[in-house]
């Protein structure tokens, strides 16, 4: 069995490839859950880039986060097609069920609620994404059951 992938492993793989910065950040976030200051400085040193540039990229894209998040990240689409079909009620149901507001993480570190831009499943709006899994055709009463799979 392969060992745990470290930031150093990822940086070795992309040595001398500053154009791969976004791929590198994706991979580090996959293993560590977020992009810490330490990781950002390591990446900058390995690619010979200013840390400000790496931080700038890490904070530009909405899939990256420089703050630790819950184990399960719930991304809610609030684009027009989901809004028209009732996304606001879904947001209210999620906030009520988890006892947190949008942008917050539950006290036990299990869930984070975030907005996302359109996830391209408007044919089954309203939709949310939990980690990499998409749920569509949602109604507020479906929320407790979906969340129970992650509790």
């Amino acid at each position: 069995m392969a060992g745990i992938i470290t930031v150093d492993d990822i940086l070795t793989k992309y040595k001398g490839r500053p154009d791969a910065l976004i791929d590198i950040l994706h991979e580090i976030q996959d293993v560590q859950g977020f992009l810490s200051d330490t990781s950002i400085i390591k990446v900058a040193e390995a690619l010979d880039l200013p840390a400000s540039k790496v931080y700038g990229v890490a904070t530009f894209y909405s899939l990256f986060t420089v703050k630790p998040r819950g184990r399960n990240v719930i991304r809610i689409c609030e684009s027009a097609p989901c809004h028209v079909l009732g996304a606001t009620a879904i947001i209210n149901a999620l906030e009520k069920e988890l006892g947190i507001k949008m942008g917050e993480t539950t006290g036990d570190g299990k869930f984070t609620l975030e907005y996302t831009s359109c996830i391209g499943v408007c044919g089954v709006a309203p939709a949310i994404m939990i980690n990499e899994v998409v749920y569509g055709n949602l109604t507020p009463d479906k929320i407790p059951h979906i969340l129970s799979e992650y509790r």
Binding site: D23, H26, Y61, L63, T116
Partner: peptide
């Protein structure tokens, strides 16, 4: 392939 990271 290059993978985006969430920016419209």
């Amino acid at each position: 392939i290059r993978k985006g990271a969430g920016a419209y």
